Amino acid sequence: MIIAVRNTGYISDRKQACFLSVLSAEEQQRILNYKRIEDRQRALLGILTVYYMFQHYYPYIEVAKWYRRDKRGRPYVALSSGWQGDFNLSHAGKWIICAMTEKGRIGVDIEEIQPLDCKVAFECLTSEEYASLLQQKEANRWTFFYEKWTRKEAIGKAIGTGLLTPACFLSIEAKNSWSIRHYCIDEAHIACLCVSEGDLPERVTYMTDVEMERYWIRE
């Protein structure tokens, strides 16, 4: 399952303080360490989305009790919970993406499609991928690039290394070890989801921070 939550900036400081109380002391402090309000909102909304998904799909898991981060900061649910699945988060612009699988590993990435300097693209792609990029029509070139980039990011996050694994080494052949799918979130954002086991969702579930707020108020 995969959820895309649009951050409209609607949640007030008072309500943010209320939502922070749902989280562990460690996660509260991590969020409060952000200087920019936008970063705090995004981080908070990401965790609330994870909690929301667990309460909907795995209500027997006390996610607040077992929510942890590894040494690289990747969130996970401790094995002590008895759960064998995985989840992952990503954000770009106003969008927060959360994906979850009941078994195996998962990685998700979302990016805003915008032109880049070709030198940057060269550093992010294999030589074969870069050659293919240059062959694309101008109208399709950057969509092509971000399809490759989001896949690399998603695989790196599923593996657990993220950008510590050079993106250019995660070539197109890496898809043979993963089930991979791209999703058009809106006209300017593309997301990629990869899983080591199981099926990929056909559709993305869309929500807003307002809907997420109503959920937590109801709770």
Rank of each mutant, 00 (worst) to 15 (best):
A4R: 01
Y10Q: 12
Y10R: 02
I11S: 07
D13W: 01
S21K: 15
V22R: 05
V22C: 08
Q28L: 10
Q29K: 08
Y34H: 10
R36I: 14
I37Y: 14
I37K: 15
D39W: 14
I47L: 09
T49G: 12
Y52M: 12
Q55T: 13
Y58K: 13
P59R: 08
I61K: 11
A64D: 15
W66K: 11
R68T: 14
D70N: 11
D70C: 09
Y76K: 08
L79G: 10
S80L: 07
W83P: 11
L89D: 09
L89T: 02
A92E: 03
W95A: 07
W95M: 12
I97F: 06
I97T: 10
E102S: 11
E102R: 02
G104R: 05
R105D: 05
R105M: 06
I106N: 08
I106H: 10
G107P: 01
D109Y: 03
I110A: 13
I113Y: 02
P115F: 08
D117Q: 05
K119R: 12
E123P: 02
S132C: 06
L134A: 03
Q135N: 15
K137I: 07
E138H: 07
N140L: 11
E147V: 04
K148Y: 03
R151H: 00
E153K: 07
G162D: 02
L164D: 11
N176E: 15
S177L: 10
R181C: 05
H182N: 13
Y183E: 00
D186E: 06
E187S: 10
A188R: 09
A188D: 13
I190A: 00
I190G: 00
A191M: 13
L193W: 01
S196T: 09
G198M: 08
D199A: 14
D199G: 11
E202P: 00
V210F: 03
E213D: 06
Y215I: 10
R218M: 15
